[in-house]
Simulated scan of single mutants.
Amino acid sequence: MTPTAAAATEERLAAHRHRFDAAFAAYFTRLAATFDTPPHSRFTPQCLDLLRELSLRGGKRLRVVLLYEAARLVTTDENPPGLAEAALSVELLQTHGLVHDDIIDDSPVRRGGPSTHHAYRHAFPGHDRTALGLAVLAGDLAAFLSVRVLLDADAPAPLRQAMLDVQTRAATDAIAGQILDLERDFHDLPDAELLHTVTEYKSTRYSVLAPLRLGLLAAGEDPAPHDARLRRYATLTGICGQLRDDHLDLFGDDDALGKPPGGDLRAGRRTYALRAVLAEAGPADRAVVEAALGDPGAPPETLDRVRDIARRRGTDARFRADLRRYAERAAAEAAEWGGWWREEAVAFFTHLPLRIAKDVT
């Protein structure tokens, strides 16, 4: 990526995040004022507050960026009908996923603050079942709000219906992917195809493909004729993003992750990164990794030993090279979009995968 292209990409990312964060805060303000809270309920407003706090605490907003830029492939209008509501919908669905992921993983920290589940456990000490139930319901509420916001969009009914179809399909795929994600860890050494399938369902379809489709729909473009090229780009970008996340979980730090590194190792997740370490380790090194997998109390020193194994055997370098190849393939795919769409937005999609890979490669 050239310095000029990199600067332009960073400028667009920052502008999109700033624009959306203001809209997301305004949405939660309206929601607090209009939500049909049951009389005498203290827990319902608390639930809304926790969802707001988690949603506004941070995040890369990459889904929103993809959505906005997908619209810019077709139009220069910064706010076509339905675009603002689609952005809210994709991030509310993401909030739902974060809340439930942290329940599944029993994660205490998310985005530099307490996970919703652990916030409830702190609020209700000694009432773990209540805390768990409230966290599940908070995640459910975020999911239904993501649908509600599209139903209420100030957009033509056919557009609302098309967006709902995209978003609800993406949501069901993501849940199926989460189920497969848990199933994956019953394989001692999952193969690459299984890991790609987990990524496809759990992440790619709702994090990349759905925002692309929603942005095009809002801009007045039917995504169906472009489905094959959108899927190719989404698949490559999704794998690139997951490789990056897996690498950062093993080799990153608190600042990069917003939570302590090594969560996948301690949860026993056979991710791309840990699968690569296991596949290339000798018997003694593999025994070290296997002993740490699924040990929630594994200390930082154990994580350092796994990192050292990966570096000593060259696994880390090969993993980063693989990530770079996926980023370059995604960039090459987007570069071919110029025959259909606006060059300025095409350039953004061309540079974005390289930017995703930059932190690791």
Rank of each mutant, 00 (worst) to 15 (best):
L145A: 00
T197Y: 06
K202S: 04
L250W: 03
T199D: 05
R72K: 12
H122Q: 14
A25W: 07
L164G: 10
G338A: 13
E200D: 13
G133V: 00
D140S: 09
H226C: 03
A123E: 08
F24K: 07
G112W: 10
K60D: 03
L250P: 00
R110V: 05
R320S: 08
R30C: 10
D264Q: 01
A174K: 01
S107F: 02
A171K: 01
P38H: 11
L278A: 05
E91Q: 13
A310P: 09
A357W: 08
V65L: 14
D101I: 12
Y27I: 10
E301W: 09
L209A: 12
A33N: 10
R231H: 05
S55H: 13
G238D: 11
L159R: 13
D181Y: 02
P108D: 10
S89F: 03
S115W: 00
F43L: 15
R275T: 15
V306F: 02
Y206N: 06
D246L: 01
A86M: 06
R320Q: 09
L50Y: 14
E221P: 02
I103E: 04
L217H: 03
V136L: 15
A327R: 05
A267Y: 01
G220E: 05
S115Q: 04
V65S: 12
D21W: 03
L51H: 10
L180T: 04
L73I: 04
L257W: 06
E280N: 07
P3F: 06
D253A: 08
G215L: 04
I309L: 09
P108T: 14
V166H: 06
A284D: 15
D102W: 00
D295T: 11
A234S: 14
M163Y: 06
H16M: 02
A256I: 06
D102K: 07
Q94I: 06
Q94E: 07
L137C: 15
A332R: 01
G97R: 12
G215W: 06
S41R: 12
E290G: 05
Y206G: 05
L92C: 05
R52D: 13
G177H: 03
V306H: 10
A228Q: 13
T34F: 02
D222L: 06
D316I: 07
A310I: 10
D249P: 00
G220Y: 04
L209V: 06
G126A: 07
L48E: 11
V136F: 10
L209I: 08
G112N: 11
T76V: 08
Y68H: 13
K259V: 10
R286H: 04
A335F: 00
A218Q: 01
A330D: 12
L182W: 02
T130I: 15
P283R: 09
A155Y: 09
E11D: 13
D101K: 03
F124C: 07
V289D: 10
D304A: 15
